[in-house]
Nucleic acid binder design. Structure first.
Lengths: 148, 148
DNA sequence: CTTATTTCCTACTGATTTGCTCGGCTTTCT
DNA sequence: AGAAAGCCGAGCAAATCAGTAGGAAATAAG
């Protein structure tokens, strides 16, 4: 039940882009440096995000990446699904094309995995990049208060 | 975010033992055959469950395995934790000993993974083997009704 | 006492996934 | 022209997965 670094790095990178939303294209090496991620590896991940239409790229000098939609319209679930595939603890409850299983109708464990899938999806789909930006602002205010 | 076969097979095997609870020790080859699992492989998994105290074994002819507690006191979460380790989509929100991360206090993504962990744990910890037995009975009744 | 049944234990293995690295090509701004 | 970026494909070491293989020890039944 672990997430791979694809999903983790992907969410970090997208959050970084959200924090810089409106400031033009952000070069990948900036994102990689700020988040301690190998630039070459992140390149492969963001290529997937680009092909899925979540980010746009600007080539050439002063180029970089931009969110293709505003932060409130992108959820963590969107990012995870692109990088990790459909949310499902086991293949027989896959969101897209559930693997066929002849005794699915009578399978008790299957119902459990469906519940897990739904609860994970509910959490991930309810959090937008904008929510994260706001939470980040709250945290900063709190730590400011702490030093008064 | 996939469960391995360890968790899946383990829950199936434990549910099988729950269905046979009170009928003395159940030999492993029966469980393996009923659930289409390699007996040798299941052997390794049930050894872990035994060492964790979830099942008891009876050696020798007419031996086998028995749940060490009644089905209503064993949750799916208990089984998964034994076979797959602590529930956590990433190590920094591990239930037992979270991996140290110096900027955990300011990490926004960390909060997301903690929410995922909690929602998964909530689902898995709320389902006991007895719940599964009852659901199984309901399903059987429904399919009986269907044929009247 | 012997034999069949069953658990217990250790080691090995092929396939797949993960988490990268390396090198080079193309585009575009200055 | 040159530097700064994205784009692309190949390769690779380590870990994990999902088993196999083979036998030793315990116990019930005959």
């Amino acid at each position: 039940m672990k997430l791979s670094t694809k999903g983790r790095y992907g969410v970090k990178a997208m959050f970084d882009l959200a924090q810089n939303y409106g400031s033009g294209p952000i070069p990948l090496n900036n994102i990689a440096r700020r988040n301690n991620i190998s630039e070459h590896y992140l390149e492969q991940l963001i290529a997937v995000l680009r092909k899925a239409g979540l980010v746009k790229s600007v080539r050439g000098a002063q180029g970089g990446y931009i969110l293709s939609k505003s932060p409130e319209t992108i959820t963590v679930g969107d990012i995870i699904r692109v990088l990790e595939g459909p949310i499902a603890p086991v293949d027989c409850v896959n969101e897209d094309e559930p693997e066929h299983c002849e005794n699915a109708d009578f399978c008790i464990t299957r119902n459990i995995w469906a519940k897990v899938r739904d609860s994970v999806a509910q959490v991930l789909d309810s959090i937008t990049l904008k929510d994260m930006l706001e939470e980040s602002k709250n945290l900063q205010e709190q730590s400011y208060m702490y030093y008064i």
